[in-house]
Design a binder for these strands. Structure first.
Lengths: 266, 266
DNA sequence: TGTAGCGTGTGGTCAGACCACACCGCCCGA
DNA sequence: TCGGGCGGTGTGGTCTGACCACACGCTACA
């Protein structure tokens, strides 16, 4: 079955096998395109197509020139690829925006629940090993930064995104972190557009600030149900308040298909 | 900022904008590569690199020849791209296997909870509209197929994957469905390798069958907590029983970093 | 009227060329 | 002897042109 593949697929598979076998590890250089092409018996353009795919997927970084920093280097940065994938799938209507928001809700709830549980466990065992305590320094700093009244809507939303992402990072699950980053970037445009349709941005931003504090408080207090509930109403509340709600009448309903049983196009 | 981009990025951005603006919709044909290259003032190879990325991301399908079925067609199949991304990120050690399993646990729990809630709601309202009831026909059929004692391990695991995916599909969330498909394919190799290290495959497969029936039963009975609990122990149990457990000592712990705070290479 | 065969347009691939860039080392001047 | 400037060299980035395989659709022939 491995015959009859397109040339660039051969290259991609070859690199994947090298990764799986450990012949290639993060930080390593890929062979030069010309060498790879000769080695695999394909044209250089086919090699480039495979490399381009890996680059977009966040697996490697390319740069021209010479020396140790040049060439194609394995990096395995999951966020970039996830963002591109989610963004394009939403653009091509493969992912309904409502599903993106729902999924974000699920993951975010899981993150804060886990963080609160870890926090409670660390407190109850009274252990001196501080490493059991999740590191919430970054989220706290971001909350402080969001207090500034001089922030524009865009700056505030960027900090908001960073806050939620920092919580995911603190939970330590790289898959969840990358997925949440992708989900966020996929609906970035909708979030920003929704902000402009608010009746009062100062009111909303003040509420968001309060809710952020409450979420972080529940985590630090080791109260998983509260943290979960707070984060769910926080996210759902924002989407309900913004114009985005017009596109998401069914965020908490179950009929997300039309009369024919097909997903409703939004 | 749009200047100074690489040629293939210009092409990619152009197509993304066409998707966002609705100029391109699922089912549409992309212009021929040569025409697109001329229109955007880039070489054909650059166009091909962008198209290749979109193809791997599951956004379009290409085929040679002439006629309405040929060319590059927007399809927006989310599963393929997600699988490639997850698989490669795991291969390149960007995603620890333990995080993949944990994320699968979160999503799967959310799926069955939602299904059970929908089932309960549909029953309690006694509504004649059967569409409120999630369609569990496919999972049921898969369970029947798994009863066959003649199945090999590989066939059984394939049906198992299809069963879990069918549950996600029944929940109607395309993002979750695609993500779960990606997560599963990312650890496919580990799952299969783990199966060979079992003390007794007949015993394990019998247990899996029973657990599947119990999960589906809890969903149909409209018992969300039971469904959630059953699916979590189902997944965690399998990974604990297989050799995979050696690689996942911390599936439910929080220390997935080494002494230096870096992710543990697995 | 039916069908076999060719024209045409498409993606798939390759080879070769050129450019920009970044390092590396030689060479020349102080 | 030491220092800096400058070209060589290897890399990715891009373009061009060519050829192939394929599938459709039309035409010409039986």
């Amino acid at each position: 079955m491995s015959i009859e593949r397109r040339a660039w697929e051969v290259v991609l598979q070859n690199i994947e096998l090298d990764l799986l076998s450990g012949r290639l590890r993060p930080g390593d250089h890929l062979p030069p395109e010309r060498a790879l092409a000769a080695e695999l018996g394909v044209g250089r353009s086919s090699v480039r197509e495979a490399i381009r795919v890996l680059e977009v997927l966040g697996l490697l970084r390319t740069s021209a020139g010479s020396g140790p920093t040049a060439g194609a280097i394995i990096v395995a940065l999951p966020g970039g690829g996830m963002s591109a994938l989610m963004r394009l799938q939403v653009a091509a209507q493969g992912f309904p925006v409502s599903d993106v928001v729902k999924t974000r809700l699920v993951l975010e709830a899981s993150v804060v629940t886990e963080l609160a549980e870890a926090s409670a466990q660390a407190s109850s065992t009274m252990d001196a090993n501080a490493s059991l305590h999740p590191d919430l320094t970054t989220p706290e700093l971001l909350l402080c930064a969001m207090e500034s009244p001089a922030l524009t809507e865009g700056e505030f939303l960027a900090l908001d995104a960073a806050f939620h992402l920092a919580l995911a990072t603190a939970s330590g699950n790289q898959v969840v972190t990358a997925t949440m980053a992708g989900l966020r970037s996929a609906i970035e445009g909708y979030v920003r557009a929704g902000a402009t349709s608010l009746t009062s941005w100062p009111d909303t931003s003040a509420r968001l600030r309060t809710e952020h504090r409450a979420i972080l408080g529940a985590i630090e207090a080791g109260d998983p149900p509260a943290a979960r509930s707070l984060v769910q109403s926080h996210i759902a509340g924002y989407y309900a308040e913004t114009h985005l709600a017009n596109h998401l009448p069914d965020l908490f309903a179950n009929d997300h298909t039309d009369a024919n049983g097909h997903p409703v196009a939004r």
